[in-house]
Design a protein around this nucleic acid. Structure first.
Length: 415
RNA sequence: GCGACCAUAGCUCAGCUGGUUAGAGCGCCGGUUUGUGGUACCGGAGGUCACGGGUUCGAACCCCGUUGGUCGCCCCA
């Protein structure tokens, strides 16, 4: 490679071949399942005013200052490449009057951008599929969303991941729990890891999923959300879990599963590979395949009316890793021109085959003598050859005996 | 932001304790062979050994720096 060739941006990827097929398979499967659940397709801008994301994140966190791709446009406005779908969809819900469609079930997919150090399963430009239900405060919405996620994973053949489920309660429950956690950890502050001492100020709920062995002894007897749930919050969670049981979705309770941002309420969930499974190995340090929750406080923080909502997103690259590389689809017909005088005939035939709906390609370059062998290596139902003149044949056909091959032979011979 | 490991042909890699002109397989190009045939053989193109400095009689190999990659920590909307 020449020194003058510009390099790709760190954390971006060029996906090709079997991996690109896996990526497409994930998206196609998602589109199919989303229709089954009657989620409506939306297309969203890849950038928004910075405040759309900054306000949804609460302005203060590192995430805003360090992890967003923000820039000024020519008018001096601060814009940001979307780091998530939810805030943009919430903004659209408000600015387009989509309240009239509430409860609104929408789904989308596409690229997202976060300024992070790349590692296995984490990129600066990455891709997600996303599903949201806006304007629905009933636990049934959570259940439907989780059933859809579960069916999607099954449809992709991913069976070694499990739904980890928790509740953060309503606003009051959540605050009471948070205060109790701070009190609990503050008492042993000096014995916590440096990171967790920091978290105590910024994001105490996160101490619960610390990996540091110094923190582990204090996690087991930490206050539990269940002791702080209001009756309403308990009833909500019970409705979610019984709905999941009725829908046949397996789940485990994950009392340490939390969300850092204040607008999250009630249900929080992640589909996580089972310990020691193939999927766990494939994902490296990343553990979550699909995650989401209820964010009843978000739309208000964007200046809208109180609006309950729940949603999830999943990384397409991560799902593609679990699905594994997929074969590129076999051609219906490969046409090889061994005799250059027959090129026009070959082009004409190629056009007819494609018009008739057969995926076909033409080999007519390079050494004529080697074209046949090259064509032979391309997986196809039929190989059509325009041989050299001396053989006396005008056309040769080599089929694989499939119904497709039979149909093609009829079409090619019967001209 | 922090840390570990890595960088040789288009791809995957070999290259010994530093020692002539840096190799293989695959792929690519050409030729011979075969002629319902994914064969075998011959030849060719393609490398500033990531980049810059240092040590040495001599560096792909040792040292320092830079860039890039991989994986992990932090963070994870």
């Amino acid at each position: 490679m020449s020194k003058k060739t510009p390099q790709a941006i760190r954390g971006t990827q060029d996906i090709f071949g079997p991996e690109a097929e896996a990526f497409a398979h994930v998206v196609e499967t998602f589109e199919r399942i989303r229709r089954l659940y009657r989620f409506r397709r939306v297309e969203m801008p890849v950038f928004e005013r910075t405040e759309v994301f900054a306000r949804s994140l609460g302005e203060t966190t590192d995430v805003v200052s360090k992890e967003m791709y923000s820039f000024e446009d020519r008018g001096g406005e601060s814009l940001t490449l979307r780091p998530e779908f939810t805030a943009g969809i919430a903004r659209a819900y408000l600015t387009n009057g989509w309240q009239q469609h509430a409860p609104l079930k929408v789904a989308t997919h596409g690229p997202l951008f976060r300024y992070e150090r790349p590692q296995k399963g984490r990129y600066r430009q990455f891709h997600q599929i996303d599903a949201e239900v806006i304007g629905a405060g009933e636990p049934q919405a959570d259940v439907e969303l989780l059933a859809m996620a579960d069916q999607l994973l099954r449809a992709l053949g991913i069976t070694d991941v499990t739904l980890h489920l928790n509740t953060l309660g309503d606003g009051a429950s959540r605050e009471a729990w948070r205060a109790a956690l701070v009190e609990h950890f503050r008492a042993v502050r000096g014995e916590l890891s440096e990171e967790s001492q920091e978290r105590l100020e910024k994001n105490p709920l996160r101490i619960l999923d610390s990996k540091d062995p110094r923190d582990k002894p204090f996690l087991a007897d930490a206050p539990k959300i269940d002791d702080f749930l209001s009756d309403e919050a308990q009833a909500f969670f019970a409705a979610v879990t019984s709905g999941l049981d009725a829908a046949g979705v397996k789940w485990v309770r994950a009392p340490a599963l939390v969300r850092g941002l204040d607008y999250y309420r009630h249900t929080a969930f992640e589909f996580i590979p089972d310990a020691g499974s193939a999927s766990a190995a494939a994902l490296g340090a990343q553990s979550t395949v699909l995650g989401g929750g209820r964010y009843d406080g978000l739309i208000e923080s964007l200046g809208g009316p109180p609006t309950p909502a729940v949603g999830w997103a999943a990384g397409i690259e991560r799902l593609a890793m679990l699905v594994g590389a997929r074969e590129e689809p076999r051609a219906d017909a490969v046409i090889v021109v061994e005799n250059d005088a027959r090129l026009a005939d070959a082009i004409a035939l190629l056009g007819r085959l494609r018009q008739a709906g057969f995926a076909s390609e033409l080999l007519a370059s390079g050494s004529p003598k080697k074209r046949f062998d090259k064509a032979r290596k391309i997986p196809a139902h039929v190989l059509v050859s325009f041989p050299v003149a001396e053989t006396g044949e005008t056309i040769r056909l080599l089929g694989d005996g499939s119904p497709t091959a039979a149909a093609l032979e009829t079409l090619v011979r019967g001209r």
